[in-house]
Write a protein that binds this DNA or RNA. Structure first.
Lengths: 194, 194
DNA sequence: GGCAAAGGTGGACGCTGTCAACCTTTTGTC
DNA sequence: GACAAAAGGTTGACAGCGTCCACCTTTGCC
């Protein structure tokens, strides 16, 4: 109903991600993003609700970028393809650390369409895992994703020396072979919902 | 040389952790910790250098608590003991989320004695892994720790529905069996330094 | 007795997210 | 055409934050 918006909604995420990658995930501010959009802080504030809302927009953009990066995984053998995907995941995290941080720290509302970009990433992991470990796809997918993210985050924290890719080839193959040979199924706690 | 310090250095970490666990890791402030210590913000500021320094003190306290929690792991079989340790790790993260956050987000200076509490945790993981997977202890230890932390962090982010303990028993056993049967060794990228 | 030095204080700065009040442009309806 | 509603924008203010500054107080040493 109202009058022409000065802000292109699609630009919010893009500009926000650019700012986050320049200043670092813990340092970027809503005010800076607003000023780069040529708009007062409050104008942007109205669009995104609050700072966390802006973070979700930034994270979505990052999730799309990550999805694109891992989608390029190749390999004839399913396990080779899985390893390649894992390496691409870690490469993305290494080359665009703040974008990765945006992807992982944003808190999209559960059960909302905000989740879509994250679900797209998860779906890709699941599909690639399914080809390698058909009978324990979700358990193995969760284990793999956890392992990948854990590597990234650990090497940024106290264990800040190791490259997250250290031993990744062997680790992925070990994970797959551990799950694959009719191996153990997850103990019954709760079904995964994402 | 100078005059009696009002601040008990040992209390900084303890009070800081208490504040962090009340207010949340992203919300606690140096000023609040100072006020609870009965001291002006600047007095505390001088002690810890800056906010990150205080974060390290808080994280150390948390690391000691975590070390205590996983030290209680039991089990006759080495793999059972490893599973028990993993569960205790995840329990700690679930029951004291902000303390765990402090443990993982603090950035102690590399190669300094600040690292000690974190190294103590790592040593425990390594020792428990070594009993189960003697020939690939570091690779498997890193894989396990990554996996545990990844589970915790993922379930707090976009995948905020799953309990991190979901399928942990099977996942640890799969990891071990993947590494154990003369399985793959890490690909040569870099040696782990912590 | 002076003096360096460590620890403490209060005041100030710039930055942040957020809120309130107000203005401007558009659209839909009588 | 007049008018209300509504969405978007603006300016101004607020409290809280980390941090820096200048200054004071207590101690141990020469």
């Amino acid at each position: 109903m109202p009058y022409p918006s000065k802000i292109d909604p699609a630009a919010i995420g893009a500009v926000g991600l650019a700012v986050a990658e320049e200043e670092g995930w813990e340092r970027w501010s809503l005010r800076e993003v607003a000023s780069r959009l040529g708009v007062s802080p409050n104008a942007l504030y109205r669009h995104v609700g609050d700072r966390d809302g802006l973070a979700v927009a930034v994270g979505s953009e990052a999730a799309r970028a990550l999805a694109g990066a891992i989608a390029a995984a190749t390999g004839d053998d399913p396990v080779d393809r899985l390893v390649d995907m894992a390496v691409r995941y870690l490469d993305f995290a290494c080359e665009r650390p703040h974008a990765y941080e945006a992807f992982i720290r944003a808190k999209p509302q559960p059960d909302s369409e905000q989740l879509a970009p994250w679900l797209a990433c998860w779906a890709q992991v699941l599909a690639t895992v399914a080809a390698a470990v058909p009978h324990a796809e979700e358990a193995c997918g969760f284990a793999l994703w956890s392992s990948l993210h854990g590597r990234v985050d650990l090497t940024r924290g106290p264990a800040s020396v190791v490259d997250p890719r250290w031993g990744i080839d062997g680790a992925v193959r070990a994970l797959v072979s551990g799950f694959a040979d009719g191996g153990p199924l997850p103990s019954p706690l709760e079904p995964p919902e994402i």
